[in-house]
Design a protein around this nucleic acid. Sequence first.
DNA 1: GTAAAATTATCGACCAGTAGGTAGTTATTT
DNA 2: AAATAACTACCTACTGGTCGATAATTTTAC
Lengths: 172, 172
Amino acid sequence: MSKKEALLKAAENKVRLGGYSNFSFRELACEVGIKSASVHYHFPTKADLGAELAHQYTDSFLAALGEPSELKASGKNPIDVYTQLFRRALVTDKKMCLCGLLGAESDSLPDKVRLEVKRFFNQNLTWLSAAHLTNGEPNPAQAAIQTVSLLEGAMMISKTLDDNSYFELATQ
Amino acid sequence: MSKKEALLKAAENKVRLGGYSNFSFRELACEVGIKSASVHYHFPTKADLGAELAHQYTDSFLAALGEPSELKASGKNPIDVYTQLFRRALVTDKKMCLCGLLGAESDSLPDKVRLEVKRFFNQNLTWLSAAHLTNGEPNPAQAAIQTVSLLEGAMMISKTLDDNSYFELATQ
DNA sequence: GTAAAATTATCGACCAGTAGGTAGTTATTT
DNA sequence: AAATAACTACCTACTGGTCGATAATTTTAC
């Protein structure tokens, strides 16, 4: 793993626990074994780092999902696959969804970071609409926003109350 | 309004836009017209201020709801009343739910603040369970966590995408 | 084939600004 | 006299960011 990748990974862990202001260049640098000045070589500003982090997070999230039509074709319910990805983030990583947390503090984010968080939700809503459509839902757009809202909310409350059974109950 | 009340009000605005780290004693002091050192007279530490803020937020939130049984008795659906309170926070205040934002960054909060955020959700779940029970829901506890999850999630996404129609679609 | 030039990735030293917090003082009110 | 509510002045720690320097590597030119 390159230093740049290591920096992004370290930043992801911090942001998913406490938001955009929960990481500093010094901390990240220390964790990957370089000096804080060197972080600016890879990311000119903190906003650049945050934006690239959210962009990559979105890409790998969507990539992990696959295509709704293909999931359906192989006998899976794409909504279950989507739910599973959130469950994994909560249970395995024991952390919030990166863009869920950043979205909540959206108003105080640098423009280029906020833009990437918007991109995450737009792409998720598109994916979910397609998924609900293949499921024969009468109103796919409505089902899509309800699905992602429920999951983000359940995740946040389970984290807050430190009890994953709330997530299970909400998604059951 | 006393200085102390004004400080809490100013802090609430800041936190609801960008989380716990989005306010400083200096900013608050400046906004209410005192010096930052004087803020420590009212709140010894930042954690004390944050905890009292979350505590009062919870109390006034619950007070604004009223009792589920009384709402039902006066011909209202308590879940609609609950939804309206969230809608007002989003549409009128144009801000996140204080405890929704703090809950997301729960892991990085001082203990006494996190405790107050937990109290918010525990009290909300109790209220919602009672409300769903009076509505004759077969599983009030499940309906309760689903209601609050959907609302917190829809609120966050509507804020992120800067479009309240997502909230309307999700709650419709 | 090699010398010169450019690129990559790092460093130490430093900057102005801000953070939360403390000590001791002063004025006002009870 | 005592409690309340503010002040000035200061502290240490940390923030994101900039500067010029330095090796090591890679590319280009002759």
